[in-house]
């Protein structure tokens, strides 16, 4: 049982929806982002998605693109991202951390070495946007063998014929992308999402968490209400972009978490 499995079991026993928050590691700088990440559990975050910066984030909208650029310009690297996770882990042994990013920095490091380092740093799962099931032998299978969850994205274009393949090697939870598009775009609609979540749940016992286009406590509540939880990324990153203090960022996160938890 990974920290992710334990967290969802705990939420289930309490009858509570999950609130997942995304921040980019090293945005706006290493120290500030560590402070924010350390504050997330206290602000009501159940699972932390930690962005690994990459020069070419093809699935991300402008907000997260710019966050990655700020981090890279500030000297953020894969090693420092792992160090940030490790530093967080020293004070928190239960909140799961999922690393989210693109494959090349991991491939460049070498998959076996990366998995060993990620595990040692206290990372619990991976969401790698540009690795569909067709490329499972690259990282998905080795990650599961190393004891890390590999969380797959399911999307509105994942039809019924394809869904079993998408669910097959997924673990931890399923991340349903609420819209066809990039992060931070159009507002997610609970009415559209509900039947899709039902469709996915028919094929798996894993929790289904919905992200993309969730920006406000109201949407967080509405979307979490039709799923097992929700993810917010761009709206939080946008607070950091606008130079808000750590306390203000965490207060904003608290509002979103309360929204999701009230579902």
């Amino acid at each position: 049982m990974t920290r992710i499995d334990a967290k969802f079991a705990d939420l289930k026993s309490k009858g509570q929806k999950a609130f997942v928050a995304y921040v980019m590691a090293g945005d706006p700088d290493y120290d500030t982002s560590l402070e924010i990440v350390r504050g997330l559990p206290g602000a009501g975050v159940d699972v932390i998605e930690l962005g690994l910066p990459f020069t070419d984030p093809m699935a991300d909208g402008p907000t997260i693109q710019l966050a990655g650029q700020r981090a890279l310009e500030g000297g953020m690297t894969l090693d420092k991202t792992l160090a940030l996770a490790r530093a967080f882990r020293e004070g928190d042994t239960t909140t799961p951390i999922v690393m989210m990013g693109y494959y090349n920095p991991i491939y460049s490091r070498g998959v076996p070495k990366f998995l060993e380092q990620a595990k040692e740093a206290g990372i619990d799962g991976l969401i790698i946007v540009d690795l569909p099931p067709e490329e499972d032998s690259e990282l998905c299978i080795p990650a599961q063998e190393a004891g890390l969850n590999f969380i797959r994205l399911a999307t509105p274009t994942t039809d019924d014929a394809r869904l079993p393949r998408v669910l097959q090697n997924t673990s931890g939870f399923v991340y349903y992308v609420s819209i066809t598009g990039i992060t931070g775009s159009a507002e997610a609609q609970a009415d559209d999402v509900a039947p899709e979540v039902a469709r996915i749940k028919a094929g798996t016992d894993l929790p289904v968490i919905v992200g993309f286009g969730v920006k406000t406590p109201e949407t967080a509540k509405a979307i979490a209400g039709v799923a097992d939880g929700t993810v917010v990324g761009s709206a939080i990153v946008s607070q950091i972009e606008h130079g808000k203090s750590v306390a203000d960022v965490l207060a904003f996160v608290r509002g979103l978490a309360d929204g999701a938890h009230s579902a």
Binding site: E134, L153, T157, R162
Partner: peptide, 20 residues
């Protein structure tokens, strides 16, 4: 059939694009 030339090529895209 996996779009590989030796170890090169492949289909490293997001799930949204994969069915397309």
């Amino acid at each position: 059939e996996n779009g590989r030339f030796g170890d090169f090529g492949g289909r490293f895209v997001s799930e949204t694009l994969m069915p397309l």
